[in-house]
Structure formats: structure tokens, C-alpha cells
Simulated scan of single mutants.
Amino acid sequence: MSRIIAGAAGGTPLANVPGSLTRPTTDRVKEALFSRLDAFGIIAGAKVLDLYAGSGALGVESGSRGAGTVDLVEFDAKASSVCQRNADLVNGLLGHKVVTVHRSKVESFLERADGSATWDLVFLDPPYPLDEPALSAVLAKLADHLTPSAVVVVERSSRSPEPGWPARLERFAEKKYGETRLWFAEPSVPDAIPPDLVIDGQEQSQP
């Protein structure tokens, strides 16, 4: 049974999605992932987005560890119902609403998101049938909604190729845990303007 590992709700069992509709992150992988995120110092107060949330385990773990807000996005009716049960559990233990569930396709959610909606930490654990071009398209949409210091974590089978990162996202780390591989990415830093193209503080057009 999956559980919340640490934080205000640490040790609390989570509801799981019945059957094989989702591929839950194992507690071993989750513990290693959050140890790394804790080292980054990114969770406390963060705005967190959990796409293809399944049971919502990664999002509610973030909420337990001090995230400011958590959005769980899941389209499947059974899975989104489990997300809501886990969100209600964590919100109750925290004493206020941190986790919100959105029953929506990921692409539609990102397209509807207001231009000012940005997140600091994003998890994507897409189903195996989602092919690489479709995942790349989602990452491109997501790039519009990241804070400058955001971290994006993509969870895939260890046999899957590296995601095709859009121009505004750059992979900075990856880690394999048995059959699971985690890819870490961050917003790309625009290349600096060459000094010979700046005169009196004004950018000059290239010939």
C-alpha cells in the first residue's frame, strides 16, 4: 500500500487506483525523488502541479512536506475520484485546503490555464501509450507556465527514450531506479547578447 512518507501527514496510507489503470510511483522511488527535491530546497511554499496524477501520490506528498498549493490533474473518472479522496485526507490533516483536484485532460488543462498561472514544481508520469511526440507537445505547452527557477520531473519506463525537450526546457539530471527513470529539467536561460551587439546599453540588430 502506498503511503505519505514524510511531513505533516507522514505515514498516512493513501488510496490506490483499482486495477491497472495507472502505474503508481513506488515508495522507494518516491523517497529518493523527494530526498533530491528537499536538497534543491524547492518544496516549501511551492506551487506544485501533478500532471497525469493517478492517485495523486506525488502531489499530496508535496502538500504534506509544505508546498503552498498543489494541483492534481487527472482525466480518468476512477483515478480522479481516488485523487479527491487523497486530497481530502491530506487537506483534513493539514487543517486547510492545499490540494485541488482537476478532472481534465492534461492538454486541455494547460490550454485553459491563465497566462499568469505558473508553477514551481511539476511532476509528469504519463501513461506508457502516450508517445514521445505527444509528450513533447505537452512539455512545450507546460513551458509557458513555469517560474524561472522551476523544476520539472518526468517519470518514464527505464526503456523509454529521453523526452524531446522544447527549446525553453533543458534537462539537467536523470536517474534510473530499476524499471523507472526520472528526468529533471528546468527553464532554459536565454543566451546572453554578444558584447559586440550592445552599444550604449541598446541591443543592435545582427547583419
Rank of each mutant, 00 (worst) to 15 (best):
P194G: 08
R36H: 07
S80W: 09
I199K: 15
R112K: 15
S80C: 11
A167M: 08
P24Y: 11
V29M: 08
F172H: 11
A44C: 06
K141E: 14
H102R: 13
I5M: 06
P129N: 04
V189P: 04
K47C: 08
R159S: 14
A77Q: 15
L89S: 07
E61V: 03
L93G: 14
G45L: 13
V101L: 06
Q204F: 07
V198Q: 08
D88F: 14
S149Y: 06
G59A: 00
L93H: 06
S55A: 09
F75T: 14
D50E: 05
D196A: 12
G10E: 12
V198R: 12
T22E: 12
C83G: 03
L93T: 11
I42F: 03
V106W: 12
G95D: 12
T25D: 13
R65T: 08
V73I: 10
W165G: 05
Y128H: 06
L110N: 05
L110P: 00
K47I: 01
K176W: 09
D131K: 13
E174L: 09
R3F: 12
G115I: 07
A67V: 02
R103V: 15
L94S: 05
R181H: 11
L37G: 11
L169M: 05
R112N: 12
A134V: 02
I4C: 06
P166Y: 01
A150W: 08
S64L: 03
V73L: 01
R28E: 09
Y177H: 02
A6G: 14
F172Y: 14
F109V: 14
L49Q: 02
K175G: 11
Y52T: 01
V29I: 13
S64T: 04
P195L: 14
T180V: 09
A185F: 04
A134H: 04
A117D: 13
G66F: 10
Y52R: 00
L94Q: 06
A140P: 04
G115Y: 02
L72F: 08
G201A: 10
N16I: 08
D71F: 14
L124T: 03
G11W: 09
L130A: 13
T69Y: 03
G95Q: 12
S55D: 04
A192V: 10
F75R: 15
S81A: 15
A150F: 10
G178C: 01
E203C: 07
V153E: 01
S116V: 14
V48Q: 11
